[in-house]
Simulated assay, not measured.
Amino acid sequence: MLVTGAAGNLGRIAVEELLARGATRVIAGSRDPAKLADLTARGVEARRIDFDDPASLAAGFAGVDRVLIISTGDIGRRVAQQTAAVEAAKAAGVKHIVYTSAPAARPDADAGLNPEHFWTEVAIAASGLDFTILRNHMYAENNLMDLPQAAASGQLFGLIGDRGTAYVTRADAARTAAGALLWAEGKTVEDVTGPAPVTNTERATLVSELTGKPVALIPLAPADLKGGMVAAGLPEGFAEALVAFQRDAVSGHHGVVTDVVERYSGRAPQALADFLKHNSAALMA
């Protein structure tokens, strides 16, 4: 079985989990196999796999029956890259694809990064192969991007009407992906979530409790939230993607809760409060 993007944060944890579960033939793919030296020392086979290089895809997928395709970080190019990977998997005789997608993946123009995931899902379904699409909800780690600033300023900005996000840790998502790679069957789409939706109001309370600093939620309309992000120095496209995530929280897409993490990883997902407590030092940065 093959894990692409194995040098990344999620991919590396997935490979570690496969080894911990006793998998005997694990292949780790990366654009730079040198980054996998610690894994090869433990018996993992490293292969160069570059979604922009058809030759590397053909060689990388050879002899593989199950593959975890981790979505790339090349925003704007992912559909072409990932479709090429799906086609290479089919040509190589892969039987089952596991793919890390996003919640409420859809083609809507205002859906932020979701269209890239949606069209990759379409390519996977059209391949005729069995698949497990894992729609990973917002990573708990993303809170470490905005909550330190909220603690410092005493203000957390979010959209009016937020209904909560079921944050999931990257480790829980990676262990879930490893479990699906090991034994998932058929053709399924699964939401990978934390144990409960957490609203922006609740996030403000959590950071206040952990830092001892008062933090107030400042609810904004989408245009105002985006404008504030751009004024703070974020590129407009990135700001729009972040606002799209929050719009989905308002519509309820991010509040879905499932048992997928426990079903595939064998352990309950970590709650956001526990994750933040474990990383409380980062909130004071």
Rank of each mutant, 00 (worst) to 15 (best):
L144K: 05
D110I: 08
Y99P: 09
A174N: 06
T169N: 11
R163K: 15
R42M: 09
D108K: 04
D146H: 00
T258K: 12
R267Y: 01
T120G: 03
T193G: 04
N136D: 10
L181S: 02
G128E: 03
N9K: 13
A140Y: 06
V122F: 00
E190T: 14
A85L: 09
I97S: 12
K35R: 15
E121F: 07
R267L: 05
A102N: 06
A125H: 07
D32P: 00
R42H: 10
D259L: 13
L144A: 02
E236W: 11
G255F: 01
I75Y: 14
V122G: 00
T72A: 14
D50V: 03
L182A: 03
A34T: 11
D52V: 13
P197H: 03
E17W: 02
T72E: 04
I69E: 02
V261M: 00
V198W: 01
V15H: 01
A58K: 10
T4D: 02
A221D: 14
L220W: 10
I124P: 03
I70P: 04
P33I: 01
L210V: 09
V256T: 10
V86S: 07
A59W: 02
L2A: 07
P115C: 10
L144Y: 02
K95W: 03
H137S: 11
M1R: 11
R203H: 01
A109G: 08
L2W: 08
A180R: 12
A7I: 00
D162G: 02
V189Y: 00
P195K: 15
S153M: 00
A80N: 03
Q155A: 14
A268Y: 03
N136R: 08
G29D: 11
Y139P: 08
T258M: 05
G161P: 08
T199N: 04
D224I: 03
D65A: 13
D172F: 09
D248Q: 15
S56C: 02
